[in-house]
Write a protein that binds this DNA or RNA. Structure first.
Length: 111
DNA sequence: TAGCGAGCTCGTCATCTAGA
DNA sequence: TCTAGATGACGAGCTCGCTA
Protein backbone atom coordinates (compact mmCIF):
# COMPACT_ATOMS: atom_id res chain seq x y z
CA UNK A 1 0.00 0.00 0.00
CA UNK A 2 1.05 3.60 -0.44
CA UNK A 3 0.31 4.58 3.14
CA UNK A 4 3.23 4.16 5.48
CA UNK A 5 3.29 4.76 9.21
CA UNK A 6 5.25 7.97 9.01
CA UNK A 7 3.03 9.36 6.32
CA UNK A 8 -0.06 8.61 8.35
CA UNK A 9 1.36 10.09 11.52
CA UNK A 10 2.17 13.42 9.98
CA UNK A 11 -0.63 13.49 7.49
CA UNK A 12 -2.99 15.83 9.29
CA UNK A 13 -0.74 18.81 9.86
CA UNK A 14 2.50 17.96 8.18
CA UNK A 15 4.54 17.75 11.37
CA UNK A 16 2.30 16.82 14.30
CA UNK A 17 1.68 13.06 14.56
CA UNK A 18 -1.96 12.16 13.99
CA UNK A 19 -2.24 10.18 17.22
CA UNK A 20 -1.35 13.27 19.21
CA UNK A 21 -4.06 15.22 17.49
CA UNK A 22 -6.63 12.55 18.29
CA UNK A 23 -5.80 12.15 21.98
CA UNK A 24 -4.53 15.47 23.26
CA UNK A 25 -4.92 14.48 26.92
CA UNK A 26 -2.72 11.43 26.76
CA UNK A 27 0.65 13.19 27.07
CA UNK A 28 2.64 12.34 30.20
CA UNK A 29 4.29 15.76 30.41
CA UNK A 30 0.93 17.41 30.44
CA UNK A 31 -0.40 15.18 33.18
CA UNK A 32 2.65 15.74 35.34
CA UNK A 33 2.30 19.49 34.92
CA UNK A 34 -1.33 19.19 35.96
CA UNK A 35 -0.44 17.18 39.05
CA UNK A 36 2.15 19.72 40.09
CA UNK A 37 -0.08 22.71 39.47
CA UNK A 38 -1.65 24.88 42.22
CA UNK A 39 -4.21 22.10 42.56
CA UNK A 40 -1.71 20.39 44.86
CA UNK A 41 -3.11 22.51 47.67
CA UNK A 42 -6.30 20.44 47.47
CA UNK A 43 -7.78 18.10 50.05
CA UNK A 44 -6.45 14.54 50.46
CA UNK A 45 -9.25 12.84 48.55
CA UNK A 46 -8.76 14.96 45.47
CA UNK A 47 -5.01 14.46 45.76
CA UNK A 48 -5.70 10.74 45.79
CA UNK A 49 -7.86 11.09 42.68
CA UNK A 50 -5.09 13.04 40.98
CA UNK A 51 -2.60 10.35 41.92
CA UNK A 52 -4.83 7.68 40.41
CA UNK A 53 -5.25 9.73 37.25
CA UNK A 54 -1.51 10.28 37.01
CA UNK A 55 -0.80 6.58 37.44
CA UNK A 56 -3.31 5.72 34.78
CA UNK A 57 -1.79 8.17 32.33
CA UNK A 58 1.70 6.81 32.99
CA UNK A 59 0.41 3.30 32.40
CA UNK A 60 -1.34 4.31 29.19
CA UNK A 61 1.77 6.06 27.91
CA UNK A 62 3.96 3.05 28.66
CA UNK A 63 1.50 0.74 26.98
CA UNK A 64 1.32 3.05 23.98
CA UNK A 65 5.09 2.85 23.63
CA UNK A 66 5.00 -0.91 24.17
CA UNK A 67 2.40 -1.31 21.44
CA UNK A 68 4.55 0.71 19.02
CA UNK A 69 7.60 -1.36 19.84
CA UNK A 70 5.65 -4.58 19.52
CA UNK A 71 4.39 -3.58 16.09
CA UNK A 72 7.85 -2.54 14.99
CA UNK A 73 9.27 -5.90 16.03
CA UNK A 74 6.44 -7.73 14.29
CA UNK A 75 7.08 -5.83 11.06
CA UNK A 76 10.76 -6.65 11.30
CA UNK A 77 9.98 -10.31 11.88
CA UNK A 78 7.69 -10.44 8.85
CA UNK A 79 10.37 -8.76 6.72
CA UNK A 80 12.89 -11.36 7.90
CA UNK A 81 10.52 -14.16 6.96
CA UNK A 82 9.95 -12.64 3.53
CA UNK A 83 13.70 -12.39 2.97
CA UNK A 84 14.07 -16.01 4.02
CA UNK A 85 11.39 -17.06 1.58
CA UNK A 86 13.21 -15.23 -1.21
CA UNK A 87 16.52 -16.90 -0.32
CA UNK A 88 14.97 -20.36 -0.15
CA UNK A 89 13.19 -19.85 -3.46
CA UNK A 90 16.50 -18.94 -5.07
CA UNK A 91 18.19 -21.98 -3.53
CA UNK A 92 15.39 -24.16 -4.76
CA UNK A 93 15.74 -22.77 -8.27
CA UNK A 94 19.48 -23.35 -8.22
CA UNK A 95 19.09 -26.93 -7.02
CA UNK A 96 16.53 -27.68 -9.70
CA UNK A 97 18.91 -26.37 -12.35
CA UNK A 98 21.73 -28.42 -10.88
CA UNK A 99 19.61 -31.53 -10.87
CA UNK A 100 18.63 -30.95 -14.48
CA UNK A 101 22.28 -30.59 -15.48
CA UNK A 102 23.25 -33.78 -13.67
CA UNK A 103 20.40 -35.66 -15.31
CA UNK A 104 21.59 -34.49 -18.70
CA UNK A 105 25.11 -35.69 -17.98
CA UNK A 106 23.83 -39.02 -16.72
CA UNK A 107 21.57 -39.55 -19.74
CA UNK A 108 24.41 -38.83 -22.19
CA UNK A 109 26.65 -41.30 -20.41
CA UNK A 110 23.98 -43.96 -20.48
CA UNK A 111 23.61 -43.70 -24.25
C1' DT B 1 -17.10 15.01 -7.62
C1' DA B 2 -19.30 12.67 -3.78
C1' DG B 3 -19.72 8.17 -1.82
C1' DC B 4 -17.86 3.79 -0.72
C1' DG B 5 -14.90 -0.05 0.38
C1' DA B 6 -10.29 -1.76 1.31
C1' DG B 7 -6.20 -1.36 3.70
C1' DC B 8 -3.31 0.80 6.96
C1' DT B 9 -1.84 2.88 11.57
C1' DC B 10 -2.82 4.10 16.14
C1' DG B 11 -4.48 3.99 20.99
C1' DT B 12 -6.69 1.36 24.38
C1' DC B 13 -8.24 -2.68 26.83
C1' DA B 14 -7.83 -7.43 28.31
C1' DT B 15 -5.04 -11.14 29.00
C1' DC B 16 -0.84 -13.78 29.37
C1' DT B 17 3.77 -14.44 31.17
C1' DA B 18 8.20 -14.00 33.44
C1' DG B 19 10.61 -12.24 37.27
C1' DA B 20 10.82 -10.31 42.11
C1' DT C 1 1.13 -13.15 44.88
C1' DC C 2 2.14 -8.83 42.60
C1' DT C 3 3.84 -6.17 38.95
C1' DA C 4 5.62 -4.70 34.54
C1' DG C 5 6.12 -5.74 29.90
C1' DA C 6 4.41 -8.14 25.60
C1' DT C 7 0.80 -9.02 22.53
C1' DG C 8 -3.90 -10.10 20.45
C1' DA C 9 -8.38 -7.93 19.63
C1' DC C 10 -11.12 -4.08 18.68
C1' DG C 11 -12.77 0.38 17.23
C1' DA C 12 -11.67 4.92 15.19
C1' DG C 13 -9.56 7.84 11.89
C1' DC C 14 -7.12 8.49 7.63
C1' DT C 15 -5.76 7.76 2.66
C1' DC C 16 -6.35 5.94 -1.85
C1' DG C 17 -8.50 4.06 -5.79
C1' DC C 18 -12.70 3.03 -8.03
C1' DT C 19 -17.43 3.98 -9.68
C1' DA C 20 -21.87 6.13 -10.67
Amino acid sequence: MAVTGDETESAATGDIPAYQLRSPNSGLAQSIVMAASPGSMQNPSSQHAEEITRKREVRLMKNREAARECRRKKKEYVKCLENRVAVLENQNKTLIEELKALKDIYCHKAE
